[in-house]
Design a protein around this nucleic acid. Sequence first.
DNA 1: CTTACATGCAAGTAACAACTTGCACACAAA
DNA 2: TTTGTGTGCAAGTTGTTACTTGCATGTAAG
Lengths: 231, 231
Amino acid sequence: MQENRTRILEAAARVYAQHGYRGATTRRIADEAGVNEITLFRHFGTKSALLDCVAHECGIVENVPPLPSDPVHPERELTAWVQARMDHLRSMRQLLLQAMSELQERPDMGPCVGHGPVDAANQLRDYVVRLRRRGLLDTRDGTGLRPLELNAAVAMLMNASFGDAISRPMMPEMFPSPQSKAAGAYVRVFLRAIGHRPADSDLTVVRGSEPTLVRGATRKGRHTPSKSITE
Amino acid sequence: MQENRTRILEAAARVYAQHGYRGATTRRIADEAGVNEITLFRHFGTKSALLDCVAHECGIVENVPPLPSDPVHPERELTAWVQARMDHLRSMRQLLLQAMSELQERPDMGPCVGHGPVDAANQLRDYVVRLRRRGLLDTRDGTGLRPLELNAAVAMLMNASFGDAISRPMMPEMFPSPQSKAAGAYVRVFLRAIGHRPADSDLTVVRGSEPTLVRGATRKGRHTPSKSITE
DNA sequence: CTTACATGCAAGTAACAACTTGCACACAAA
DNA sequence: TTTGTGTGCAAGTTGTTACTTGCATGTAAG
């Protein structure tokens, strides 16, 4: 019967997200949980122990489906992935902000911001490498991006989704609207930046009279197929 | 002789940036300022009044030089601009984090995060419009970016610089290294995404055998010269 | 010199936060 | 029934915070 324990943990996460460490008083947490303040101490001993538990149990959510190991339709796949990540980030917005602002003073909440973003960036980098191996990227000399720029592009897409999820509520004018189309727009900009050349099956989607990129020299860039983009 | 007043204000800004509103106790601020705690009250009355002053006087810094109204060398100009913005953001990192995390609970510090980023985004948008008017962007049908994607590209560059300045210390693996080359990399990715076609004078810089983008159809996109990219 | 003002120091108040202790009640397993 | 466990309630302790009052000091202008 540790129903109360989880109630307290969830309440603590909510209160912490809204008020920060110092503002998350034991009284407020107990009230939010609908539990006596003493019960809280009997379960967790101290306030910091309680918030440590919160930090360690909030990082395990991360139910964003991974990018496919076999790229078929990059725009569709990336858009779904970015959208899922943004939804997830939005749901943790306040908690992330608090954890980030207090990370220096109180590294306990570190696991909360944790490795999620870093893992996601690595995932995206690997995906781009796969795209390149499949010849889906334009890699002509003088045109193909060098590792530095590819990493920059990855960072830009990650920061776009992160910043959109975190900052849009406080400065909506800065972000593309409507919000529902932002993820797709970020992905299209990203693909264009890394020189994505749609496969033949995708060319039917193109609306204009001319294809998006110059044809020919199609499989020329294959000379460095196994090179990672980590410099 | 209001030397003490400014000393208190600066100390309050530092302490607030490090500890947040609740953690910025009057005692800590007074100690940091090397001033008796009572002096603080005699000057500002209350703690919240003091921090209000901090919020209103911290927004007036913003010494980032504007983008040139007459684009000549976009990569160079944008890189300098982005670099200056990142330096500025880095210097306000902790203060921004605190203000953002507490903005819901205590909008007093709102002026601190304020309109800086929004203004910068508008500046960048205007700059892109000028680039397009000058025919420096590839605007062929099916290739040129629609307003949604242009806004997305702008948001991505803004968020890249913001996220780099704010988040790099806590997750360095996510960002292109070395840090000193990040701004330039973001700008190159951005320019590539919005279809920047270097002017003839810039073509000498291109290292490869082929020019970056297809020539011809040079001034074709001029049919909508005055259209803003705000949809 | 005197007046005014800014500051420092000592002491205290009222509120609140993190806990503790002691006792009582309910309920379930032994 | 007994025993243990989880919970609630009342009250109190200890420390901190925001803020006040009263008084003494230095210093610069009149």
